[in-house]
């Protein structure tokens, strides 16, 4: 695990990857095991249909709770899933370069015969690998839970929703890593990226029902992540490309800037 920067970074975050993966798997199990109870609760959907639109935006409409996919879309892929994955990604992203710089270990690392671009890309690779572990664990949790609870779950829908969640996590993590690499400031990297996530979530969820703010949802990462309810309607390639493109621009800018700036002691 000490062969290169990529493996060393994975080694550094092995506990974190393990605990967050347990978390996503537990989320998958909990929600799928809980689903039959909600499905069988009579009167609940009638109640939902009578709610004003703003509350339906908040907790889901009737369809949300009558199909397994709708339920998982609301319970896993609208809030809890993105929250866990984003927190993991932002922490890993800020630690990657700005974190090493602030704990004064980057200087010594870069005194080795290795280019800054290589360090940045290997650390990005480690982050993407960690996210993959969280995603696979979530998938296992969801599929295993549905089997135990005895209902059918669309495997393609689930896979696509997880893929979309993975892209969101990668966007948040690499954005944090990029800001950290470009500035060397961990707090700034974490703060800005968390802001992008929180504002994105608010714009896409609560504020989507405010007509004046409707156009603003296009600047939300959450809009591209799951506005079309991937679990139910499949992945939207254009939306995914928007996130991948944003991430690509961020990483490319970070590579350029990191290579040219001074590293602090």
């Amino acid at each position: 695990m000490l062969r290169n920067v990529y493996l060393k970074s994975l080694r550094d975050s092995r506990k974190s990857i393990l605990f967050y993966s347990i978390g996503t798997m537990a989320l998958g199990l909990y929600v799928t095991l809980f689903y039959p109870t909600i499905r069988d609760a009579t009167g609940f959907t009638d109640f939902l249909e009578d709610l004003p639109e703003v509350f339906q935006a908040l907790i889901g409409d009737a369809e949300t709770y009558t199909t397994a996919e709708g339920f998982l879309n609301a319970e896993v892929f609208s809030f809890m899933g993105p929250l866990i994955v984003s927190v993991f990604a932002i922490i890993a992203g800020t630690a990657a370069i700005a974190g090493e710089e602030e704990s004064h270990t980057l200087d010594q690392l870069l005194a080795n015969p290795i280019s800054r671009t290589s360090v940045l890309l290997q650390k990005a690779g480690a982050l993407l690998t960690g996210l993959l572990a969280l995603s696979v664990a979530l998938g296992i949790g969801l599929v295993a839970g549905s089997k135990i609870a005895g209902f059918d779950l669309s495997i393609t829908g689930t896979a696509q929703a997880i893929a979309s969640l993975y892209v969101l996590g990668a966007t948040m993590g690499l954005l944090a890593l990029s800001i950290g690499a470009a500035t060397g400031r961990k707090g700034l990297a974490g703060g800005v990226t968390a802001g992008v996530g929180v504002v994105g979530f608010l714009l896409d969820t609560f504020l989507s029902v405010v007509e004046v703010l409707e156009p603003a949802r296009f600047i939300s990462v959450f809009y591209y992540f799951n506005n079309n309810d991937v679990m139910l309607n499949g992945i939207n390639a254009a939306h995914m490309l928007a996130l991948v493109g944003l991430t690509g621009v961020a990483v490319a800018t970070a590579v350029w800037r990191f290579d040219r700036r001074d590293v602090s002691v």
Partner: peptide
């Protein structure tokens, strides 16, 4: 850097 050994003033790692 392949050919240089370096010890910083304050060795933190």
């Amino acid at each position: 850097r392949q050919e240089v050994g370096y010890l910083p003033g304050d060795f933190v790692t």
